[in-house]
Amino acid sequence: MSTLLQALGLSASGMNAQATRLRHVSENIANADTPGYRRKTVSFDADMRAATPGTVKVGDVSLDRSDLNEIYDPGNPLAGADGTYQGSNVDILIEIADAREAQRSYEANLKVFDQARQMSQGLIELLRR
């Protein structure tokens, strides 16, 4: 029974990590047109100090240090003397790909969680007989 509980903990930590990742992806998409905005990225680490070894914990959120896009718009109040200003470094295609990857990983963890739940319910039913 303890192995089933460990599987539930592992998949729950994976779902939590992917939900956090998806939240940051949605923030990036929402701020894609915000001047000076830098894309946020999330790292994942194995939590070796947890009760269930191998669970996933969300690491630090870091900012993407790639160059900001230069946008030519002389009518914009942020534009300098050359008519350009710095936009964001968010690429919508990358964010959509990250969102799909996070969604699929979340769904895989959800299937593991559901399978472990069904197995534990089956075990409880067998023990009741």
Rank of each mutant, 00 (worst) to 15 (best):
M1S: 15
L5W: 13
L5C: 11
L8V: 13
G9H: 11
S11C: 10
G14W: 01
M15H: 01
M15P: 00
N16M: 13
N16Q: 15
N16R: 14
Q18L: 06
A19G: 09
T20K: 12
L22Q: 05
R23S: 07
H24L: 11
H24D: 05
H24S: 10
V25R: 03
S26E: 00
S26C: 02
S26T: 01
E27H: 07
N28R: 03
I29V: 02
A30H: 03
A32Y: 13
D33W: 00
T34F: 04
G36P: 01
K40T: 11
K40M: 14
K40Y: 12
T41V: 08
V42R: 00
S43H: 10
S43L: 10
D47G: 03
M48C: 09
R49S: 15
A50S: 11
A51Y: 10
A51D: 12
G54L: 06
T55Y: 08
K57S: 13
D60L: 07
D60H: 03
S62I: 13
S62A: 14
L63D: 06
R65L: 12
R65Y: 09
S66Q: 08
S66P: 02
S66W: 01
L68C: 09
E70N: 14
I71L: 02
Y72V: 06
Y72Q: 02
D73N: 13
P74R: 09
P74L: 10
G75R: 15
P77F: 07
A79F: 03
G80S: 03
A81P: 11
D82A: 09
G83D: 02
T84H: 13
S88W: 03
N89I: 06
N89A: 05
D91N: 15
D91W: 14
L93C: 12
I94V: 15
I96T: 11
D98S: 12
R100F: 10
R100H: 13
A102L: 05
Q103W: 07
R104E: 04
S105Y: 08
Y106M: 04
Y106C: 05
A108Y: 05
N109R: 03
L110D: 05
L110E: 08
V112S: 04
R117V: 07
M119I: 14
Q121M: 03
G122Q: 12
I124P: 02
L126D: 03
L127N: 03
R129D: 11
